[in-house]
């Protein structure tokens, strides 16, 4: 994609929309978001989504998903708590070249954000934003069978079980989100 914005060194930033909800701001990744990401991937909470990772491997994952904005034109937004300004997770579209179709994904980094509906708010905003801005209207979500919290959220969002598939990272359940109007 052609980038419209540039950082201080003249390298392009993705031409990515910023999304707002009642409590959250969703914006494209920047370097200052990496510590929150690496902290999550150093913790046992990351075990069901590819972790734990050391800082170097976390940087590879973070920079790779940032680069997807340029390769595909869409990607993960960083989820910022509007009141505190703290990065509390990420939500958006994961679609590397080897993935069969766009996937809606979300991560909430800390326990302290559980039980407040934050993950639902972030994932729904990302799903709506992907439909409106990128025409991705019925994404899948691939979830490990043991990740009961994410399965419950996918179901609350109206996603339906749509079989299983063998990803490069191992077997996953596939959920299909309902058609969202663009």
């Amino acid at each position: 994609m052609i980038a419209a914005q540039h950082n201080m060194r003249g390298t392009p930033l993705p031409d990515a929309p910023v999304l707002k909800t009642a409590r959250l701001l969703l914006r494209p990744p920047q370097l200052s978001d990496f510590d929150a990401f690496a902290g999550f991937y150093a913790s046992p909470r990351s075990a069901m989504i590819g972790g734990p990772l050391d800082r170097k491997d976390a940087y590879s994952g973070f920079s790779s998903t940032a680069g997807q904005w340029f390769l595909k034109g869409y990607g993960f937004w960083e989820v910022i708590d509007r009141e505190s300004g703290v990065n509390i997770g990420r939500a958006g579209i994961y679609h590397p070249d080897f993935w069969p179709e766009p996937e809606l994904g979300w991560i909430i980094y800390g326990d302290s954000h559980e039980g407040r509906g934050i993950a639902m708010e972030a994932a729904t905003a990302a799903r709506d934003g992907a439909a409106r801005h990128f025409g991705i209207t019925a994404p899948i979500s691939s979830i490990e069978a043991t990740n009961s919290r994410s399965i419950a959220l996918a179901e609350r969002m109206g996603a339906r079980r749509d079989g299983e598939w063998e990803t490069p990272y191992g077997p996953m359940l596939r959920f299909r989100h309902p058609q969202v109007s663009a």
Binding site: N7, M8, R9, G10, T11, P12, L13, P14, P29, Q30, L31, F34, S60, F62, S63, S64, T65, A66, G67, Q68, W69, F70, L71, P96, D97, F98
Partner: peptide, 15 residues
């Protein structure tokens, strides 16, 4: 592909 994406992301993040 992940390596390519990471190289592009590195430019975006660090300039």
């Amino acid at each position: 592909w992940e390596r390519l994406a990471a190289d592009i992301g590195h430019f975006m993040l660090k300039g």
